[in-house]
């Protein structure tokens, strides 16, 4: 069907002879990419293997002993790091291609085992005493070094998560875990600042040219941590939510500006939807404060959603068209 189409285009003078041959070759003998499929297989294999080993250790913890388990984790972790060190391409501040596919997965496994090893040491032997933040800080630093040295975005994601965990533990004075305490004011401030810091890291990576390809990952984390914590702040500081709402609007406006600057539909949608959630919460609260009958309140709130959703859909369509037009798409 496709080759017939390109024949027709060729007859219309829209395709050269060479391009016609290329398309005939492309559609007659199509090449299927198994890149993502095999990566999913590898990832599932690593997941199954590490989970199986975890359960095996857990079930036999009494008979194996802590030293044996720690030695085993350390040995596998060292093996992973040694393999990656041997195989890695020379260090560069630019993007370095992975030498082989095993490299990527063994580095992630090594990073995970590193966190597990230090966590196990602290949990079982209290090597850092009651300073739990140190138990999160050390793997975080090691993971950042690993991510930058070996040039691995997966390990960088692990490192950023550890950064959030360390911050949460430090703020809450060893309360674990971080997310469970997101309603505490200090945690909310810290999370907002972390989000802003990660967005700043986007610019630092881009401007310094040091691992500039890491910038988008920093921004992804920064965006969602910032918006989620601001939204929670609006809920938590009710009825004094206006300053937080202003911050949400500033964040949203920044993301819309970024979307237009970089032709990113993703940041456009994210910025608008988070602002809508925050704004809707305030509107619903204001409707409730009117003190009218409960059923009438519910009806007005539903009506608000119908009207606001229609306006938002219209706005999204317009902004999408403008973004496409500006980018010449």
């Amino acid at each position: 069907m496709q080759t017939g189409l390109f024949d027709q285009l060729h007859k219309q003078g829209l395709l050269s002879d060479e391009s016609l041959k290329n398309t005939q070759k492309l559609f007659a003998k199509p090449v299927v990419s198994l890149y993502r499929d095999l990566n999913v297989l590898l990832y599932s294999g690593v997941l199954l293997l590490s989970s199986g080993l975890g359960i095996l250790v857990y079930k036999n913890i009494d008979s194996i002993g802590h030293i044996a388990i720690l030695s085993c984790i350390a040995a596998i972790c060292l093996f992973c790091y040694a393999y990656c060190y041997r195989k890695m391409s020379p260090f560069s501040w630019g993007e370095v291609n992975s030498p082989d596919v095993l490299f990527d997965y063994l580095l992630v496994l090594g990073g995970l085992l590193l966190v597990l090893f230090i966590g196990y040491l602290q949990y079982q032997y209290r090597v850092f005493g009651e300073r739990w933040n140190l138990a999160a800080f050390i793997p975080m630093v090691l993971l950042f070094i690993t991510a930058y040295y070996f040039d691995h975005r997966g390990v960088l994601a692990l490192a950023i998560t550890n950064l959030a965990a360390w911050l949460g533990i430090t703020i809450n004075r060893f309360t674990w875990p971080f997310l469970g305490n997101l309603n505490e004011h200090e945690t909310i401030y810290a999370a907002i600042l972390l989000g802003i810091f990660l967005i700043c890291m986007f610019y630092f990576s881009a401007l310094s040219g040091r691992k500039a390809h890491f910038k988008n990952l920093y921004h992804q984390f920064g965006t969602h941590i910032f918006f989620i914590s601001i939204t929670i702040a609006i809920f938590e500081f009710d009825p004094r939510y206006w300053p937080w709402f202003m911050l949400l609007v500033i964040g949203g406006a920044y993301h819309i500006f970024k979307a237009f600057k970089e032709t990113s539909f993703y940041y456009l949608v994210v910025g608008i939807l988070y602002m809508y959630f925050g704004f809707s919460y305030i509107v619903l609260d204001l409707i409730e404060q009117t003190g009218i009958e409960a059923k009438a309140i519910a009806q007005i709130q539903m009506l608000y959603f119908i009207i606001s959703a229609a306006i938002l859909a219209f706005l999204l369509v317009r902004l999408n068209n403008k973004l496409k037009k500006d980018a010449g798409l």
């Binding site: 198994l34 590898l42 294999g45 199954l48 293997l49 080993l53 095996l56 596919v101 997965y105």
Partner: peptide, 20 residues
């Protein structure tokens, strides 16, 4: 069950590596 997970995990890694 855990031995099955280890076995099939290793098998998957080997198959994927071989295919690559």
């Amino acid at each position: 069950r855990e031995a099955e997970m280890i076995f099939y995990g290793t098998l998957l890694i080997m198959i994927a590596y071989f295919l690559i």
